[in-house]
Amino acid sequence: MTASDFLPEEDWESDISALLGGLPNVAPPDGFITEALDHRPLHAGRLVAGLGAAVFVAFGVAIGLGGFGQSSVVPELSALNAQHAAASAGGLGTASYDSDDESADDAVEVAPNLDLQARIVREEDLRQAVYDVGGDQVSIFSQPGVVDFDELPSGTIITIEGVTAWEAADDNVVVLQTADYAVTIIGLEPAEVERAIADIPGQGTAAAVGRLVNEFTSQLGFPDLP
């Protein structure tokens, strides 16, 4: 209690406070906490499924396609943010910004059975997938190399399902290190990224990732796994 807590309140304020103080506890449904601990999506439905698929693709591609070496990478976040903003402003399915890669428009339809739309843009080694998830637009960038976390701006280093990641202090930006790739996800809160990754079935097993990559790579325009 502080001095300000003892300042007089008007009677009507005390009445309102008493009313609110009398509100009963609200118990969670039976089994809810256990299910929440198991990461099972409850009502998020399309959102979680969509994010899971999106991140799954990013992980699959990042983990499944190696051979680019281990050069140090510091994602240029301002540039990626601008690229994300440009893509988001243009909406999906339209030519919202230039790309020299004509095959980009051929790779728009990704995982249509998962109710996602995406555009893949490849500029040299940088790849961007733009997803429309529940009305929010999310970009996933991947580029070969090992993230130099020390060179990223002020943020927090975290571990998501065993994967090292960095989250921005204020913006919805997460940078992940997966195998030979730096993956930057823009437009999702870190907790949503974590939830999406946690909901990926079989994530962490090479075989599952391999199957997934082979399932999606033709649509993504990437080569199949050996």
Binding site: V26, A27, P28, P29, H43, E189, E194
Partner: peptide, 27 residues
Amino acid sequence: GRFLYSLAYRLTGNHQDTQDLVQEVLL
């Protein structure tokens, strides 16, 4: 969990948003 759920319900006002919120909070 009960404390979190009750607080989340008072904040959101409905069970569906409460459950989504609690899941995110737990993460």
